Amino acid sequence: MVVSALRVGLTAVSCDVSTLCCDTIVGLSNKARTLGDDNPYALSLLTLAELLLMLIIKMEIPPDSIPAAGAAIYALTCVKPALLEGLARQLIEAFAINDPANVPRLEEAFGVLTNGVLFDGLRPHKLRFQDNFDKFLASVHGFLIVK
């Protein structure tokens, strides 16, 4: 039920609600990480990652919520480090159907996103991820949204 409420909140037009949902995802992800990535809480929480990433890329999340959304993506990936790689592959395949020319650019952008980042929850890696996340968004929005 909490995950369903978070889904609704993420798609809200209010910056405050979206940010609060992202902050809640970070807290729940940190707790789920201590329980291991195969527990039922982690599995249901990880379903939010695809929605969150699509909202971010399609610019359907309030701009002021973007830093909190990046923190949520990082926290979710710390629960299951292979998560972001799988989401990247899904996203690239989805965009490849409509515009195959963007595949190399998306692959490069996702490479920038994870460059030098360990998904261990430590502050230096969170900060590096946030910096990479900003570069990733600038790049992706530059070639996907312009079209």
Rank of each mutant, 00 (worst) to 15 (best):
S65C: 08
I66V: 10
A68N: 07
A68K: 11
A69W: 08
G70W: 09
G70S: 04
A72C: 03
A72W: 01
I73S: 05
Y74W: 07
A75D: 04
A75Q: 06
L76E: 03
L76T: 03
T77A: 02
T77I: 01
C78Y: 02
K80N: 05
P81I: 00
P81T: 02
P81D: 00
P81G: 00
P81Y: 01
A82R: 08
L83N: 01
L84T: 01
E85G: 00
E85D: 08
E85T: 00
G86S: 06
L87M: 04
A88Q: 04
A88P: 00
R89I: 01
R89W: 09
L91D: 04
L91S: 03
I92L: 06
E93W: 07
A94Q: 06
F95I: 00
F95K: 07
A96P: 03
I97Y: 14
I97A: 12
N98W: 11
N98A: 11
D99N: 15
P100K: 13
A101W: 12
N102Y: 10
N102Q: 13
V103W: 02
V103N: 01
V103F: 06
V103D: 05
V103Y: 04
P104D: 09
P104Q: 06
P104C: 04
L106W: 10
L106E: 07
L106P: 04
L106N: 07
E107N: 14
E107S: 11
E108P: 04
E108D: 15
E108H: 14
A109V: 11
A109Q: 10
F110M: 06
G111H: 08
G111W: 12
V112C: 09
V112H: 10
V112R: 14
T114R: 08
T114V: 15
N115C: 07
N115W: 13
G116T: 02
G116V: 05
G116R: 06
L118P: 10
L118E: 15
F119M: 08
D120M: 06
D120T: 03
G121N: 06
G121W: 08
G121A: 03
L122P: 10
R123M: 13
R123Y: 12
H125F: 14
K126G: 14
L127P: 14
L127K: 15
L127M: 15
R128S: 12
F129L: 11
Q130C: 12
Q130W: 15
D131K: 15
N132V: 04
N132H: 13
F133S: 11
F133T: 07
D134F: 14
K135T: 14
K135V: 10
